[in-house]
Write a protein that binds this DNA or RNA. Sequence first.
DNA 1: GTAGAACTTCACATCGGCGTCAGGTTCAAG
DNA 2: CTTGAACCTGACGCCGATGTGAAGTTCTAC
Lengths: 124, 124
Amino acid sequence: MRIGELARRTGVSTRSLRYYEQRGLLESARTPGGHRQYAEWTVDRVIRIQTLFAAGLHSDVIAGLLPCMHDHDGTPNERATHTLAEELSAEAERIDRAIADLTRSRAVLDEVMTTARLGRDDGS
Amino acid sequence: MRIGELARRTGVSTRSLRYYEQRGLLESARTPGGHRQYAEWTVDRVIRIQTLFAAGLHSDVIAGLLPCMHDHDGTPNERATHTLAEELSAEAERIDRAIADLTRSRAVLDEVMTTARLGRDDGS
DNA sequence: GTAGAACTTCACATCGGCGTCAGGTTCAAG
DNA sequence: CTTGAACCTGACGCCGATGTGAAGTTCTAC
């Protein structure tokens, strides 16, 4: 499929797809004319990439990670590097901290809302 | 106290403190020479600001919010606007969504770590 | 009065994923 | 062959809190 269809099927802009390729997250075959051509399983990969981005991982970390995940054909690929494993657990901790922070923030915001409500309009 | 001490006591850079003032989050008296002078309770306020920033609120939202929180002297200040209340619940929802997203992402990352571990070094 | 730490304002840089415009080429259908 | 949609590359812009550096002023301790 070409980039437009991939974009439509994944909900990711063509700009982003080209960016992913530039960052080494996606590969594409090219038509004689230079248009990108994607395999079916690329859809899954793009979605996976999106999830990882949503987790706050940077493109270079994702780039190192992707070849270690088993792909379309179920073949496990490269073995995870020691450094990669460390990076991953670092990311996991970061996410945990982020969640904890947000939870605290949410509590504070609740408190704030209550406090602010003290001075609320009482029915004019 | 002056800006340096405030920075030390809050762990916030002087740059940020000046930025907060520029955005209307902090006020300061000035010495005849133009140096900023802060009251004691400013420490608490800065910490509160930090928390709100950590919650992902933008400075203008915080600026609208701060005067509605009771301050140093326990006096409730301005009443919360209707729009402010709406903004706040919007923020609360945003945070809830962010937490949900991160939780999902964390789960994916865990799965990823497991998957990547499949190809792990087995003891060489 | 003098050194030097602390402060002032101004302004440019950063990060990173992506929007978006520009100018040109390729593809698919008629 | 022609037309219009889809695609290409390249480059600049953005957001927003903060780092950073410059050049000048003020405060404090001696």
